[in-house]
Amino acid sequence: MKTLNLGESDPRFISEVEQRSGQKISRCYQCGACTGRCPNTFAYDLPVNRVMRLIQLGRREEVLSCSAIWLCAACQACAVQCPNEIDVTRVMETCRQMSAEAGLVSERAIQVFVKSFLGSVKRNGRAFEPGLMAGYMFRTGRFFTDVDLAPVMLAKRKLAFKPHKAGNGEVADIFRRYEEEGPVSCNLESDHA
């Protein structure tokens, strides 16, 4: 295992996570309640409490490139469990947003799914399930994702054939403004003055 040089701690990273998530990271005393309760720990490279610890240590790279922040299903169990009232789910989600913005995504397929979904919403105003699945399969090369489900879904009329358009362009406007603004900015200087 790599030696962590404590002198390399990045206080701006801690501050950014705290401001974007609205949570005070230093309150975590490493009890592990989040890890104990997380239903997805079995699939993570880092348990949740270690993600929290690495944020406390200001390890931007290690946190933003881990798979745990992408495999978190945002089920809120950790947030309810935390004895220090940290909304851990929001911290995980914040790290995931920052990971995408920093280009450090470890679970590319998930990011592609997210983009396919949002693309569908942007185009139609509503999510169009078959369309976004097609986009996902095309972009990941996973052409056989859930094809086993297609016949039964067709039989049960669970697949719509064409998207319902809604929103009269207002949703596309939201996306346009979002893209123009770029990532959210925080005031990182004042906090660590």
């Binding site: 947003q97 997210v114 207002e170 979002y178």
Partner: peptide
Amino acid sequence: DWTCCGSTPAHVTDFGLSGALAAR
């Protein structure tokens, strides 16, 4: 004329985007 709330993909991307899509 309801539209998508953004679902999980929006709030893992940006709380601002998610908030705007849902709030519409």
